[in-house]
Computed example of a mutant assay.
Amino acid sequence: MADMAQTDDVLDCWDDLTDALGEGCVIPVTYMNSTAEIKSLCGKNGGIVCTSSNASATFDWSYSKGEKVLFLPDQHLGRNTAAKMGMRLDEMILWNPFKPLGGNTLEDIKNAKLILWEGHCSVHTRFTVNQINEARVKYPDVNVVVHPECTLEVVTAADSVGSTEHIKNVIEQAAPGTTWAVGTEISLVNRIASENPDKTVFCLDSVVCPCSTMYRIHPAYVSWVLDGLVEGVVVNQIKVDDDIRRYSKLALERMLSVV
Rank of each mutant, 00 (worst) to 15 (best):
G22S: 07
C50L: 13
E23T: 05
T35P: 03
G24N: 07
N33T: 10
T35D: 07
T51R: 10
E23C: 00
E23N: 05
K39I: 01
S40W: 01
G43S: 10
L21T: 13
T35E: 09
A36K: 15
C42K: 04
N45A: 05
K39V: 02
V49P: 04
P28Q: 11
S34V: 12
I27P: 02
L41T: 03
E37F: 02
T30I: 01
V26G: 02
V29E: 00
K44Y: 05
A36R: 14
Y31C: 08
C50N: 15
C42V: 09
C42F: 09
E23W: 00
K39E: 09
K39T: 03
I27G: 06
P28H: 10
V29P: 00
G43M: 11
L41Y: 03
I48A: 09
I38N: 04
V49W: 04
T51W: 08
I27M: 11
S40I: 02
M32L: 14
G46Q: 06
G43I: 12
E23L: 00
I48F: 06
I27F: 06
A36L: 12
P28G: 09
S34F: 07
T30Y: 13
C42N: 06
G47M: 09
L21G: 13
M32T: 13
T35K: 00
L21H: 10
G47S: 12
V29N: 00
M32N: 14
T35R: 00
C50F: 12
G46V: 08
I48V: 15
E37T: 08
N45W: 11
L21D: 13
L41F: 13
S40M: 01
K44A: 15
S40D: 02
C42T: 07
G43K: 09
G22Q: 08
G24W: 06
I27D: 06
P28C: 11
G46K: 05
K44I: 04
K39W: 05
E37M: 05
N33W: 13
C25Q: 15
I48M: 07
K39F: 05
I38K: 04
T30S: 14
C25L: 13
T51H: 10
Y31S: 04
C42M: 08
C50R: 12
T51L: 10
N45G: 04
G46R: 03
V26F: 01
I48Q: 11
G22E: 08
V29D: 00
N45C: 04
T51F: 10
N45T: 08
G43R: 08
T30A: 14
A36Q: 14
G43V: 11
I38W: 06
C25W: 01
G24H: 03
N45H: 15
